[in-house]
């Protein structure tokens, strides 16, 4: 199918983009890489009057270290997430997840800011944003605010971004020496949407787990923290008993929706297996 007719604007600054959106009276859509939006337009799931192409705004580009935070410009493409040395070092869960994001040609155009603001519940980057405890920098005509990932993902395809507001950068607290992490997902074929995926970030101090963030995706309307599994690990040494305890609790953390092909029991089972593998991986990194 073909998209419904729309008009097109290509602003060169953030302010110009915000003004253009305001002038359009909310029936507008920002487009960056367009790898989710363009098919949605082709299928007429969305039909805005105006498409505002933000792909040429220089301020939305670049990756740089700012004190204890890594600032990743919203226009950073998936293929750049895969190869950027700063991301690999300081925001390693994005780097680990990137090869699983769709196919090479999609990664060549899709942007991390687009993926996070679209917030598909099966997407890797929104979940890893939550796993790393990142903050999202949003700009509107009235100013800039930073929203913690824990408050950002609200519901199915719904985030804390207000109409007209623009996600300009992702700020990731950089990895510290005590951090360990792991990522994996189960998909039927490489590049397909994950049946279940998970990222784990744990901080150790004197061999004990001080903090843990365990985030699953493709199990509900938003990326989801497995709070009970996280809690049971705090203050413990990561050994087989601790892994088993976390695995036993993770089923209760998740409430997957009914799905003809992947019923909730199967999702819970896969989540348990996945968590065991990831914690096992971290356990071996530690020794």
């Amino acid at each position: 199918m073909k998209a419904r007719a729309f008009s097109y604007a290509r602003p060169s600054t953030v302010m110009e983009a915000l003004e253009t959106f305001a002038d359009a009276g909310e029936d507008a859509s920002y487009v960056a890489g367009g790898q989710s939006l363009v098919p949605a337009l082709a299928l007429r799931l969305q039909a805005p009057q105006l498409l505002i192409d933000i792909a040429h705004i220089e301020a939305l580009r670049g990756v740089e270290l700012q004190g204890g935070w890594l600032r990743i410009g919203a226009l950073t493409r998936h293929c750049e997430v895969l190869t950027d040395p700063l991301i690999a070092r300081h925001a390693p869960l994005y780097h680990a997840a990137a090869p699983h994001v769709a196919h090479p040609a999609i990664r060549n155009r899709g942007t991390i800011g687009g993926s996070i603001s679209h917030s598909d519940p099966a997407s890797e980057f929104p979940a890893m944003t939550l796993a790393m405890g990142a903050e999202l920098e949003l700009v509107s005509r009235t100013g800039t605010r930073r929203v913690a990932a824990d408050d950002f993902f609200i519901d199915l395809f719904q985030t804390a971004i207000e109409p007209g507001e623009l996600l300009v950068a992702i700020h990731v607290p950089v990895i510290r020496p005590g951090h360990r992490w792991a990522f994996h997902e189960f998909a039927r074929r490489r590049g397909d949407y994950a049946l279940v995926g998970c990222g784990v970030l744990a901080e150790f101090s004197d061999g004990l787990i001080e903090q843990a963030r365990i985030v699953f995706f493709s199990v509900g309307n938003t990326p989801l923290r497995a709070r009970q599994a996280e809690q049971c690990l705090i203050g413990k040494r990561l050994d087989e008993a601790a892994v088993a305890a976390a695995q036993a609790l993770v089923g209760g953390d998740l409430d997957p929706p009914e799905d003809e092909h992947v019923p909730p029991a199967m999702k819970r089972h896969l989540a348990r297996v996945l968590l065991g593998r990831l914690l096992g991986q971290i356990m071996r990194q530690d020794s």
Binding site: Y8, G34, A105, R109
Partner: peptide, 17 residues
């Protein structure tokens, strides 16, 4: 497009200006 292989069905011609 600009050195990278992409889907031409997933971008509008105006974006390629």
């Amino acid at each position: 497009v600009d050195g990278r292989v992409v889907h031409s069905c997933l971008m509008f011609a105006v974006q390629a200006g």
